[in-house]
Amino acid sequence: MRNTFSETLYAEATANPDIYIVVADISPAGSMGKFSSEYPERFINVGVAEQSMIGIAAGLALKGCQPFAYTIATFSLYRPFEMIRDDLCYQNLPVTVVGMGAGVIYSTLGGTHHTQEDIAIASALPNMQVLAPCDPLECIEATRWCAKQKNGPVYLRIGKAGEPVLTANAEPWQFGKLRYLRRGRDVCILTYGVITAMATDIADKLAAQGRSVSLVSAHTLKPLDREGVTAALQRHGHVVVIEEHAPQGGLASQVKQIAWDVRATCRLDTFTLQDAFIHNYGTTSDLLAAHGLSPELILAKIG
């Protein structure tokens, strides 16, 4: 996904001289080499200095530029949090903060590199918009949108590498709207981000059991499509939320809140990361399973 991001941003920057990228000693691969060699004045590497990464992006935006700030998700959001709050959100500047490798993608690097709370933290900030594409094609759509929007700041949560294409035949991507990757009648799986691949596998297995399954990418976490979530709760007998995020403040807790508000009568199951730091190592799948997120564990619970 980071390659897709960099290729898309390079194309956008070629068309728009106001696009800058400010990185903190971590660079998206792929076309970012072309970006930095062709537009060296618009590729700023601050080094291991995330606070200034955000402040510099804010200064660029205050002068009419359209900057992106990019590094590993923990460092792009947590380390410079007050700069994001005051410089970007309080001033409502169109800066995109890219959190790369969010969730437990950095599965061998330990808890310092896991991003389990980012959606909650970013969503708590006034003016902040939160996007989490589920595959490289959605990443293209989200990046293009970020490159043009002037609403205010965006937190763009992306994966790292090797994510499969899941949305080739999906309905068009639209900011702020749930996106059905497939439509069914019985079960609706709401998910977002990289774990959508696992959700797709689960949807396939449920379909093989004869269930009619909807699979939805909730790529815009803020503003969340409340009407869309309400419709999903009302049109399906069973709604399942799967997310690579802590139980507090992510999609699961918001869907529960909406379900209460609209007096939903469907069955609602949520599957999230635990509210815990875990000290496991291995593949991303190993860590997700340690948190209780695997097709087998989820299928066993939703029956």
Partner: peptide, 23 residues
Amino acid sequence: ASTGSLGHGLSMVVGMALAERGK
């Protein structure tokens, strides 16, 4: 710019100076 929390100004100044040069 909105300031008041200390230590924010100079980074924004750097960004503004970069924008002036870029434009």
